[in-house]
Amino acid sequence: MSIFTVASRYAKSLLELVQEQGNLDAVKTDVEQIIAVLKSNTEVQAVLKNPIISGDKKRGVLLALFDNKVNPLIVSFFTILVNKGRAAILVDILQEFIREYNVVKGIVNATVVSATALSEENLKNIQAKIASEIGAQVLLKNKVDASVIGGFVIRVGDKQIDASIAGKLQKLDKYFVSQGV
């Protein structure tokens, strides 16, 4: 079974349980904080992924970091994951939880790639335009890539709008090649 499939199953279970208890938004905030802590601490990641380290030690590390700091349901969830031998994919499970949360809340992730960082005003305008087009709340990230040259590339799910100079140059190049020029 793939990591994605396993992570998705655990994430959905946690999401359903949290929804039943009415703590969805609070748990989502805790999960985001946990992901940030785990991603910034490579030693903890190494402990969780090491098959030689006992489940008790892994559980102890997670409890030391998060007990009485996050929703008790999450701490119980950690215990289940460790007992099932899934501590190595904890970050994957939590990221999948965030993705599932976004689906439930109708939130769509989008990325705008530009040659230079866009102003807050430009980002808000693009975000509002995308939201009105797709009829959903949009979380917009700005990535800077100098190879775009100018303009921007917007990605929403599996759709892409390429309004970059680099994209237009590529289209022009393909046209000339197809014409034998």
Rank of each mutant, 00 (worst) to 15 (best):
E16S: 12
L17K: 00
N23F: 02
N23V: 00
A26W: 01
K28A: 15
D30A: 10
V31R: 11
E32S: 13
I34T: 09
I35K: 05
A36P: 01
V37L: 09
N41M: 08
T42I: 15
Q45V: 14
K49W: 01
I52H: 09
I52A: 12
I53H: 13
I53S: 08
S54E: 06
S54G: 15
G55C: 12
D56W: 08
K57E: 08
K57M: 11
K58C: 13
R59T: 00
R59L: 07
A64S: 15
L65Y: 12
L65Q: 10
L65I: 02
L65F: 07
F66H: 02
F66Q: 04
K69T: 00
V70K: 00
P72S: 04
I74R: 01
V75D: 06
S76M: 07
S76T: 13
S76Q: 09
F77H: 03
T79H: 11
T79N: 07
I80P: 05
V82T: 01
N83T: 07
K84Q: 12
K84E: 11
K84F: 05
A88L: 05
I89V: 10
I89W: 12
I89M: 09
L90A: 03
I93T: 12
I93E: 13
L94M: 11
L94P: 11
Q95A: 06
Q95H: 14
E96M: 07
I98N: 02
E100L: 06
Y101A: 02
N102G: 13
N102E: 12
V103P: 08
K105I: 06
N109Y: 13
T111Y: 12
V113E: 03
S114C: 03
T116W: 10
A117Q: 11
N122K: 04
N122F: 00
L123G: 02
K124W: 01
K124S: 12
Q127I: 03
A128H: 07
I130Q: 06
A131W: 08
E133F: 15
G135K: 12
A136P: 02
V138N: 01
L139E: 03
D145K: 06
A146I: 01
V148H: 10
I149P: 14
G151W: 04
R155F: 13
D158N: 15
K159G: 03
I161C: 11
